[in-house]
Amino acid sequence: MSKRQHVTIKGTKDGITLFLDDLCSYEELKKDLESKLSSHKNSSGDSQLLPVRVNAGNRYLTAGQQEELKELIRRKKHLVVETIESEVISRQEAKEQAEKSAVTTVAKMIRSGQVLEVPGDLVLIGDVNPGAVVMAGGNIFIMGILKGVAHAGCYGDTQAVIAASAMMPSQLRISQNVLTLQGKAGNDNLRDMECAYIDEENEITLGRLQSLASLRPGLTRLEGGR
C-alpha cells in the first residue's frame, strides 16, 4: 500500500500552490512538507523568488501554526509565501465577520465632542453636530443633517459610502481618503440627499443619492440581498 500524500505541490504560471492534507496530524503534515520542499526544484531560475500559495482545505491553522509553516517554507531558498487559505475559521473570527457585516441603528443627536463608532454599517436617525464624529467599519447612512465629521470604511474598506439627508460636513473620510469641506459646515445652503464615495481616480466624490444603486450594487443586501 502506498503512503498517503500529506502535501501536494502544483506548479502554476504564477508560482506554486501547496495543497495540505486536512486529515493527518499537524506534525505529520510538517514532516511531509519539509520533505517535499527539500526535493522540489525551482524551475524559474536560481535568482527569482517563487510565490507560494498554501491551501489548507478544511484544516484550521492557528496564527502560530501559520507562522511556523511560513518560516518552514521561507527556509527553502527563493520561496516566499503569498497567502494561506483555509475553508474554516475560528469562532472569534466568525464573530468579528458577523459584527463587520451587521447594521447598527442609532436614534439620537451626536453632539460636539462626541464620537460614535460601530464595527459594521451605521444608520443614524438624527443630526451630527459640528465638532462631532461618526465612524463605521462599513457604510454610514444619516437620516438627518451631517455637520461634523463622518468616517466610513474606517478599517480600510474603500467601497464604503456616506449618505445623508442633508450634507454640511466639515470633513468626510472613507478608508484612508480625506475630503475637507472648509466653510461648508457654516453654510446655510444644504445639499439634500447626497452621498460620498471613492471614485475611479481614488478621490472622494459627492453625488446624488440615487446614483448609489449603480455605483455600489452590493448595498442591496440591506434590503435582503436581492
Rank of each mutant, 00 (worst) to 15 (best):
L124M: 08
K184W: 11
S2L: 13
R74S: 09
L33Y: 03
E194I: 05
R53L: 15
Y26L: 08
G131K: 06
K3C: 03
M167I: 07
G186N: 15
L190G: 08
A132C: 12
Q159N: 14
K31H: 13
I162A: 08
S2Y: 07
T180E: 10
I142L: 07
H151L: 11
K77G: 11
E203A: 15
Y155W: 04
L209T: 01
L181K: 01
K41E: 10
T62V: 09
Q171T: 12
R91L: 14
V128C: 10
T105A: 07
L37V: 06
T158G: 00
G153T: 01
L20Q: 02
T8M: 08
L179G: 00
M193I: 01
S101G: 00
K41L: 02
N42Y: 02
E67Y: 05
A98E: 06
G131D: 07
R91S: 11
E27Q: 14
R191D: 07
L209S: 09
K77C: 09
N139I: 01
R221W: 11
G148D: 06
G186L: 14
Y26H: 07
D32W: 11
S44G: 04
A56V: 03
H40D: 05
N58W: 03
K36R: 15
K76G: 06
A213C: 03
H151G: 09
G113V: 07
D14K: 15
E87M: 11
S39D: 10
L215G: 07
T104F: 08
R75D: 09
E68H: 03
P130C: 05
E223W: 14
A63L: 13
E223M: 13
L124V: 07
N42M: 02
Q66R: 14
T17C: 10
Q182R: 12
G207F: 03
